[in-house]
């Protein structure tokens, strides 16, 4: 999949977040979908994680084998539907906990050791000190990007779409 220089510049801004604040928040939310779609299309494994307040989540996406991010969350949330980190906050240690788990998933993928979180969403509630492993439905059922008949076949530039939205 070849990108133009303009596309590389635009897509990298989603991830590098040169713009902080509301625009940056939108881009980070959208980046999760962009990265997922790119990995599914290129058949690359992806470790997804998210953290907010005292909660975190983690799954390992193996395109073609297990469900992808869009199987779980079809599209970016509407405005104000979910709190942003600026509004809700996130405890710093959450990054350490979930980040280390992501690293462990990567080690397991590379070495072939153990069982990956493909097909499961691991959730962590720090206040209850509780981990849960939620089984996800198999990949593809109606998914716009990873099903056998995908409707999303090109990366979506949500930045352009967001600029067109009127608030």
């Amino acid at each position: 999949m070849a990108f133009t220089n303009e596309q590389l510049e635009r897509y990298s801004r989603h991830i590098i977040l040169k713009e902080i604040g509301v625009k940056g928040q939108k881009k980070l939310l959208n980046a999760k979908f962009l990265i997922n779609d790119a990995c599914v299309m290129e058949k690359k494994p992806l470790s997804h994680a998210g953290i907010i307040r005292f909660k975190g989540q983690l799954t390992t996406i193996l395109p073609g084998e297990g469900p992808c991010y869009r199987c779980i969350f079809q599209s970016p949330p509407p405005k104000d539907a979910v709190p942003t980190c600026k509004e809700a906050g996130v405890i710093g240690a959450m990054g350490g906990v979930i980040g280390s788990l992501q690293a462990m998933e990567a080690v397991k993928y590379i070495t072939g050791a153990g069982e990956l979180l493909s097909g499961y969403l691991l959730t962590y509630d720090a206040l209850k000190m509780e981990f849960r492993k939620i089984k996800l439905p198999p990949r593809g059922k109606g998914c716009a990007v990873c099903s056998d008949t995908p409707t999303i076949t090109k990366l979506i530039d949500y930045e352009q779409a967001a600029c067109e939205l009127k608030h």
């Binding site: 977040l17 902080i20 928040q25 979910v82 942003t84 980190c85």
Partner: peptide, 16 residues
């Protein structure tokens, strides 16, 4: 029944 919550992540905004 399971509820799966969207977590956008990030710690931006602290620079504002």
């Amino acid at each position: 029944v399971e509820f799966l919550y969207f977590m956008g992540g990030g710690a931006y905004g602290i620079y504002e």
